[in-house]
Amino acid sequence: MENAQPFPAPLVRTINLSRQYNMGASVIRAVDNVSVEIARGEFVALLGASGSGKSTLLHLLAGLDRPTSGSIEVAGRELGQLSAQELARYRRHTVGMVFQSFNLVPSMTLEENVELPMLFAEVDRQERRTRARQALERVGLAARMRHRPSEISGGEQQRASLARALVNEPVLLLADEPTGNLDSRTGEEIMSLIREFNQTLQMTVLLVTHEAPLADRFARRVLQMGDGKLIAPQVTSVASEAAQ
C-alpha cells in the first residue's frame, strides 16, 4: 500500500465540516465544525450520547448526505465536488456500511442480499455468485445462503450485512452501532470479525458505538462527540500508530 511514503496522506480528512437542519426558526447543528483525519488502516471508534451527531457524520462520510459547509476528502476525492452519479459510484466501490438494524432486504435471501451491491456495480452474474459465496463463507454463513433474514438470528443478520459491506472490497468500513441490537457475546463476535477485516483486508474502520469498554478493547483510537462537536482528543495525525 502507500506505507512506503514518509507522510502518507490520510484516507479521510474533514475540515470544518458542518451539517445543519433548519427547523423553522431554530437551527439544529447535527454536525458542527468537525475537523478530523483518519489514516489508512486505522480502526477508529466514535463514542457519544444519543443525538450527538454520530450517525449524521457517518452519513456525510458515506456520501449519503451532503454537508452544509466544510469539506470531506476521502481517498483523495473531495466529496462535495462529486455529482450524484459519482457519489453513487463512490458509495459502491469506496465505502461499505453496516447498521444497527442490519438493513438487509427482507424479501431476499442472504445470497441475493450480498449480491445486490455487485448488481449496481455491474459485476457479471457468474462472478457475483462466486464472490457472494466467498463473502458469506468468510463470515461463517455459507450454510445459510438461501435463508431469508427473518429466518436467522440477529447476530447472523449482522454477519450477512458485513459480508454485503465487504463484497465490493471497499477501503473504508463505516459501522453505525453494529452491536446495538445484539447481546454482548454476539456483539463481541461481530467486533472480532470487524477487527479481522481491519487487519487482514487493510480495511479502514470507523465504528460508532455507545459502549466505551467495547471501543477501548477493539479500537486503536477513540473519538468523542457531543452536540455535533468533536471533544477530547482533537485532530491528531496517528498514521504511525495505524501501521501495525
Binding site: A88, R89, R91, R92, N103, L116
Partner: peptide, 16 residues
C-alpha cells in the same frame, strides 16, 4: 422506502 434507502446506501444511483 427502507429498501430504496438500503439500495442507495450500498451503491444504487438515483437513476438505478
Amino acid at each position: 422506502r427502507r429498501e430504496i434507502g438500503i439500495m442507495k446506501a450500498i451503491g444504487a444511483s438515483d437513476k438505478d
